[in-house]
Nucleic acid binder design. Sequence first.
DNA 1: CCAGACGTTGTT
DNA 2: GTCTGG
DNA 3: CCAGACGTTGTT
DNA 4: GTCTGG
Length: 222
Amino acid sequence: MCGRFVSREQAAIEREYNIRVLNPFERVYNAAPSMQLPVIRRAAGGEREALSLRWGLIPHWWSRPGLPTSTINARSEEAASKPMWRSAVRHTRCLVPALGWYEWKVTPEGKVPYFIHAPAMAGLCFAGLWSEWRNPSGDMQPSFAILTRAASRQMTAVHDRMPVVLPEADWAEWLSDWPADHTQRLAEKVDNSLSEFEFYAVSRYVNAPRNQGERCIEPAAA
DNA sequence: CCAGACGTTGTT
DNA sequence: GTCTGG
DNA sequence: CCAGACGTTGTT
DNA sequence: GTCTGG
């Protein structure tokens, strides 16, 4: 699955998504659930906008005392039909720019974190969903989730789940209007998602979300 | 009909 | 063991 | 995802 | 809001 990743900085987002970004996004080397992280969505006027949302989707009907804790990922196999996700699959999809993500491989010696990325450290784009929730104070709280799928043959070496990574050719359609057939369109985008990456073990330094910086993606000592 | 859940992963 | 916070 | 907290009463 | 369970 995808419970930790490396976000992208302002310049990279402007360059790769062909948009103007006003917020000075910094690269977050250890992006963790509940953090505010940059995503790209279609604004009311139809143009793309980049803004920070809370990672961990809060549906608009949420009314329990705490915030939901298991909504950082949405299973792509079922999201189109589930009450928690269906509306977002239909109407509020987003792109989540990333340099790569982390998975913890289970070994006899314990869990070992790996950093997974595109060749040449090119940027990646996760398929995301967003939502807005009005908190008890009346403020609108926007949030997002990352879609997951079964690991590709290659990625099963590390873990059995992985994020849905959209090729650039599919970004525009992901953000476009989906008036019908959202189940089939989601399935098509997942089927067409990327499955080949590069990866290497990193230090357990990344385990603690308070640890940040380039050290998170340095290869682990041999 | 109303009440209550609605989510993921991993582990057992 | 389980929940919350980052 | 992992790390870290997890509790009360009374006093300052 | 919408679906499931009783």
